[in-house]
Structure formats: C-alpha cells, structure tokens
Simulated assay, not measured.
Amino acid sequence: MQGLGELETAVMEVLWRDPGPQRVRDVLDVLNTERDLAYTTVMTVLDNLHRKGWVSRERDGRAYRYVATRSREDAVANALRELLDSTKDPESVLLRFARSVSPRESEVLRRALDDTAADQ
C-alpha cells in the first residue's frame, strides 16, 4: 500500500478483515499466527497509523480500540491516484492498464465512466 510499510499494511489488513473496534491484543493475536511480534511493536504501529490518519481510536478502560478510517478500496484507489500523479505520462500508463484488464473489469470501468459522464 502506497505510504505504508509492510507491517503497517499487515495491521490494516487485520482491521479491514474485521471492521469492528479492535484492541492491540486482538490485532497481535491475528498477526502472531504468521509471525512473532511483540505487543509494543503492534501498539507502536497502531499509534503511527493513528497519527497518519489511517485509523481512529477510542479509549476503552486503559487501552484503545482501533478502527480503520478508510476502506481497503479507498486506500488502493488513492495509491493508484498517487502513482498516476507521480508519472510523467499518465495517459500511457492508463492505456497500458486498460489493455491489461479482464472483460469483467473492462465492463466495470465502462459503467463507471458512463456514470461519471452522466453526472456532468
């Protein structure tokens, strides 16, 4: 994910899979099925994500409960937008991308463009 490190992305994936408020321990338990992380590591990552605006948090006793502030789809779309903005030839990139999509994806793009044109 653009602007996020590997561990930040893994934490966001946990929050996106279960959109309810989650404690550090909840996130750690999911992540530790694949790796061996310390509680303080996950707490620091969630604090950084909060500072970056990726998650909100609410006090629950002495701990916080965290929730993603943007959907996975919004995050991916924003990353694509940033990539297009960072290239000198966005039209060429869009054309190459358009040629790589499946027929179903192409139809989704056509409908979205038609809806956008109808709104203008």
Rank of each mutant, 00 (worst) to 15 (best):
E13M: 09
P21N: 06
L49Q: 02
R70H: 09
L46T: 06
R99Q: 14
T40L: 11
R99V: 00
V101F: 03
E58H: 13
R65Y: 05
S71T: 15
Y39K: 14
P19F: 07
K52A: 13
D26A: 11
R70Y: 04
A98E: 10
L49K: 03
D74A: 15
P103A: 07
E91K: 09
M43P: 00
R96L: 07
T33D: 11
S86T: 06
E107M: 08
N48D: 13
A98S: 14
D89T: 14
S102H: 05
D47R: 13
V30L: 02
V55W: 01
R25I: 13
G5S: 11
L37T: 03
V42K: 01
R59K: 15
A68T: 04
E58P: 02
L95I: 05
S102A: 07
R57P: 04
A38R: 15
D114H: 05
D89A: 14
M12A: 04
L109K: 02
W16P: 02
V45L: 06
E73F: 03
R81H: 14
R104N: 09
D47V: 07
T87Y: 04
L84S: 04
W16T: 07
L83W: 04
F97H: 02
M43S: 15
D36A: 15
D36K: 11
D74R: 12
E107G: 06
L37W: 09
A77E: 12
V14T: 11
L113S: 03
V30F: 02
S71W: 06
R65E: 09
P103R: 04
K88S: 15
L7W: 06
A98P: 02
S86N: 08
D89N: 15
E8Q: 12
G61Q: 05
L31K: 01
V11W: 01
R110G: 00
Y66S: 04
V27K: 01
R104K: 13
G5T: 13
N78W: 11
D29F: 04
R70G: 07
D36I: 10
L109C: 10
V24P: 01
P19A: 09
V108A: 08
N32W: 03
S106G: 15
L95Q: 11
L95P: 00
D47N: 14
R25V: 14
S106A: 15
D60C: 00
D60R: 10
F97K: 03
S71A: 11
R70N: 10
R72T: 01
T69S: 09
L109G: 03
D36Y: 05
D29I: 09
V11Y: 02
P103S: 10
E107Q: 11
N48A: 12
Y39M: 06
P21F: 04
E6D: 14
A68F: 00
L109P: 03
V14E: 05
E6A: 08
E107R: 06
A112V: 12
G5A: 04
